[in-house]
């Protein structure tokens, strides 16, 4: 199955040809290529990468968010790691998402496997995936406040009364059960 080994650079050039105004930058580090794109047409780009018979990036390895708090604007990035089984080549797409208008198109209709990673990204970064069929928190409880992987999220809780309700309940229950402890 190891066929024509495609250089990720060629893939990046192809995207650039097809969507010239979407590409912001192409960066290389340690032999891995990142294509930084605008978020507006990310769904189209992914669809193109997936369906183009030459490129055929069919395995979406991962979707994750990155928070560049006070480091750069726009603040967030959604990173897609795409892999082409046919070309054995990895491509990274980084779509920029601003903080005040925090959404991106969902890619679940192209890659079913993006479902949970996108939910996780929403859960931990608060980036809304438009068109996602079931955008709920996945790792954290449904009534959790805040997005923990954002850089401005406190590492230690000093919330006191404003602590997450589930935690307070557990503490209360533990206090109540103290009476059953053997003395």
């Amino acid at each position: 199955m190891v066929g024509n080994v495609l250089n990720p650079k060629e893939a990046a050039e192809k995207i650039k040809e097809k969507f010239p105004e979407e590409i912001r930058e192409i960066r290389e580090h340690n032999g891995q290529l990142s294509v930084i794109i605008r978020r507006d047409r990310v769904s189209e780009i992914l669809k193109y990468l997936n369906s183009d018979p030459l490129l055929k990036f069919d395995l979406l390895k991962d979707v994750c968010g990155v928070d560049y708090y006070k480091k750069k604007e726009p603040r967030f990035e959604v990173v897609y790691h795409l892999y082409s089984l046919q070309n054995r080549c990895l491509l990274r797409l980084r779509a920029e998402v601003p903080e005040d208008d925090c959404w991106i198109q969902s890619s679940v209709d192209i890659f079913e496997g993006a479902n949970w990673p996108e939910r996780e990204c929403y859960d931990l970064f608060g980036i809304v995936f438009k068109g996602h069929p079931d955008l709920r928190r996945v790792l954290l409880p449904d009534d959790w406040e805040g997005y923990p992987l954002r850089k401005d999220y406190p590492l230690q809780s000093d919330l006191g009364e404003r602590e997450w309700k589930g935690y307070l309940d557990v503490i209360e229950l533990a206090k109540k059960n103290m009476e059953f402890e053997t003395k």
């Binding site: 580090h29 340690n30 891995q32 390895k61 991962d62 994750c64 790691h81 990895l90 990274r92």
Partner: peptide, 21 residues
């Protein structure tokens, strides 16, 4: 170094990837 890296191995359960920035 300033940069990013996605590196994966074939863990027993499947592909275990680490993405560092």
């Amino acid at each position: 170094p300033d940069g990013e890296m996605y590196s994966a191995i074939e863990a027993p359960k499947g592909e275990l990837g680490f993405y560092f920035i």
